[in-house]
Design a protein around this nucleic acid. Structure first.
Length: 637
RNA sequence: GCUGGCGUAGCUCAGCUGGUAGAGCAACUGAUUCGUAAUCAGUAGGUCGGGUGUUCGAUUCACCCCGCCAGCACCA
């Protein structure tokens, strides 16, 4: 005789075991219709779940996150059901929920086409409309393996076979389709009303590139049509701020076939680059770094000593001359160690901080290239700090604060911190890695941030803190990093004289804030949809005359603004003012200055902001004052 | 690198089943001298990504290569 306690604290007593659906029905017909699942003592279950004894119960509807997750999960199963209906010899594998939707991986003799997707989606809609019950069944593991083998589902059998023997497993049956699943699922397919298949692409079985490639169908699913429409609209808007499109529209850079993964920077793009670089140079100077510059190529023997030859060779470019082999640098660290090594260093010199805008070449797999975000020739704001073990923590703490300050100056406040731990392929013993990982954890702890740990994702020479930012369509990109390295200084012979007059090997901290300049600029472009803050805008002001009569005055205003230190151009073309304004608006210029006879006579300028607001007439001095106030890092438009 | 898709004028794209290419915008020339998101008229512009093959004939079909896009794998 179970007593069921509901979220509002009320308790309902039942004469015998009841299902979640029956409890919902006893509360109200509307709730019964809305019930997707239940949460019994905090655990998600189907609406068919029987409550045998006293329990806490919440009815899960599509109003809460768990509800929409269940809908997406069940839609993934509906997709598999539809595929099996249309392509009976396709094999099912897994179909998890992802952000905004789901996917399902299939093995099939031929690739699915866009036409197949349309047909599958239609079949899904049909199966949903038939409102087929979804029933949970408990099976013995070995029987389930035998069953899936008997119906030709080898992948499914393999998955189940990896579950511990003797364990009960759950299967879900909807119509003729049976799938292994932990659940819970919606009670019937009729609950699945708003979904859309998005794309099909290859994906490796069990995520391993050594395995065969399956076909992954991606879909999105929602509880309300409006939510899905909003999501699709968001994707369209995101496409408009794609840095590749804006890079062309705003004439910032281009890439071409002859230089895959390498960027041609145009004057405007390079002006943006310089704004970022000069800012970061200031950051070096203000924070105790000395800027250095090391060669682009170095003899291979150095890369053998550093460990790159053994651990990073497949990503490196090589060249040769007069029987010597060189490697184009993929990282700046070995070069900085050479500079460190040129003098006898004392413990008094530490921490010694070098910074470089170092261009690196990495031979990335062709499939990884993406606009200017993922390229083969990129420039890092790379710094290396040589220090003692005791100095690690304060240096990391200081770096963390600095990195967040820089991100905020560029307008980013949503930064995820991750800690990447020892990879399989690495230098050094476990004791050293324990020490390095502990040092980073301690520093993050002292910085008072939350972080996610990523086992196996560290660099081959040390663990790293990673700073991740999301782009406009939700992709996450790593920008900054802080890595502790006990290995490379020793391998490359770095040492200093300690207080006790012995020679010791310094610890090296590898750090970058914006990471790749190219990637960072790509993210900036997307983040601002091309409408960069004044201090970063390649061209800050255009002075446009109404007609030829004010050409001289317009040129005078242009000269005045340039003398005040702004990036300015005059538009003296024989075009209507509305035409000029449209063009410069499309170029997302922060300010447009219009000068006609009235302004010329009054020695004023008429200012139009990027938002289209007419700021009226003002003196050039007042306008310069406004620009100076706004045009600083962190300044807002 | 893997799976799939794509590659036509500076940009965005048309171009059924093979018969040597078209639009809009941009560019250029001329006219217009204009008050806050497109003035009018005209002109020019393409070895259809590269190669090989099939064919009387290939932008169109086949194969190979290069590049791009999506995803996977990899990663700053």
């Amino acid at each position: 005789m179970p007593n069921v306690r509901l979220p509002d604290g009320s308790v309902k007593a039942f004469p015998g075991p009841v299902t979640v659906a029956e409890v919902a029905q006893s509360i109200g017909a509307g709730l019964a219709r809305a019930a997707l699942a239940g949460r019994v003592n905090g655990k998600l279950v189907d609406t068919s779940h029987r409550i045998e004894s006293d329990a806490d119960l919440a009815i899960v509807t599509d109003k809460e996150p768990d509800g929409i997750e269940i809908i997406r999960h069940s839609t993934a199963h509906l997709l598999a059901y539809a595929v099996k209906e249309l392509f009976p010899d396709a094999q099912v594998t897994i179909g998890p929920v992802i952000e905004n939707g789901f996917y399902y991986d299939f093995a099939y003799k031929r690739p699915f086409t866009p036409e197949d997707l349309t047909a599958i989606e239609k079949k899904m809609a049909e199966l949903a409309k038939r409102d087929i019950p979804v029933a949970r069944e408990e099976w013995d593991r070995d029987k389930a393996v035998a069953f899936f083998k008997s119906i030709g589902e080898e992948y499914k059998a393999e998955i189940i076979a990896s579950i511990p023997a003797g364990e009960q497993i759950s299967l879900y049956r909807e119509g003729d389709f049976v799938d292994l699943c932990r659940g819970p699922h919606v009670p019937s397919t009729g609950r699945l009303k708003v979904f859309k298949l998005m794309k099909v692409a290859g994906a490796y079985w069990r995520g391993d590139s050594k395995n065969e490639m399956l076909q992954r169908i991606y879909g999105t699913a929602w509880t309300k049509k409006e939510d899905q429409d909003a999501y699709l609209h968001m994707l369209e808007e995101a496409e408009k701020r794609d840095h590749r499109r804006l890079g062309r529209q705003l004439d910032l850079f281009h890439v071409q076939d002859e230089a895959p993964g390498m960027v041609f920077w145009h004057p405007k793009g390079w002006a943006l680059w310089q704004s970022v670089e000069q800012y970061m140079r200031r950051v070096y100077v203000d924070n105790g770094y000395q800027e250095v510059r090391a060669p682009q190529i170095l003899d291979v023997s150095l890369w053998k000593r550093s460990g790159h030859w053994d651990n990073y060779r497949e990503n490196m470019f090589f060249t040769g001359s007069e029987n010597r082999d060189y490697a184009v640098k993929p990282m700046n660290c070995p070069g900085h160690v050479q500079i460190f090594n040129t003098g006898l260093r004392s413990y008094r010199d530490l921490p010694l901080r070098y910074g470089e805008f170092g261009q690196c070449h990495r031979n990335e797999p062709s499939g990884a290239l993406h606009g200017i975000m993922r390229i083969r020739a990129f420039t890092q704001d790379d710094g290396h700090i040589f220090c003692t073990p005791e100095q690690i923590e304060p240096e990391v703490v200081a770096f963390h604060a600095l990195a967040l300050k820089v991100y905020a100056d560029f307008g980013f406040t949503d930064v995820a911190v991750k800690l990447a731990l020892r990879p399989d392929k690495r230098l050094g013993g476990d004791a050293v890695w324990d020490q390095a990982e502990a040092a980073l954890r301690a520093a993050l702890g002292r910085s008072g941030v939350e972080w996610e740990e990523l086992p196996g994702e560290g660099a081959f020479y040390g663990p790293k803190i990673e700073y991740h930012l999301r782009d406009s369509i939700g992709r996450s990109w790593q920008l900054g990093t802080m890595q502790v390295d006990f290995m490379m200084p020793e391998r490359l012979g770095a040492e200093y004289v300690a207080e006790d007059n012995t020679r010791k090997v310094p610890v090296m901290l590898h750090r970058a804030i914006v990471g790749s300049m190219e990637r960072f600029i790509g993210i900036l472009i997307e983040h601002y949809a091309g409408a960069l803050p004044l201090w970063l805008a390649p061209l800050q002001v255009v002075v446009a005359n109404i007609s030829e009569h004010q050409a001289d005055y317009a040129a005078e205003v242009e000269a005045g603004l340039r003398a005040a230190g702004f990036r300015v151009a005059a538009d003296l073309r024989n075009e209507k003012i509305s035409y000029k304004i449209r063009e410069h608006s499309l170029q997302k210029l922060p300010y447009q200055v219009v000068v006609g006879d009235k302004e010329k006579a009054a020695k004023m300028v008429a200012v139009r902001s990027r938002t289209g607001e007419d700021l009226g007439q003002m003196s050039l001095e007042d306008f310069v004052g406004r620009l100076k106030h706004e045009g600083v890092p962190g300044g807002t438009a």
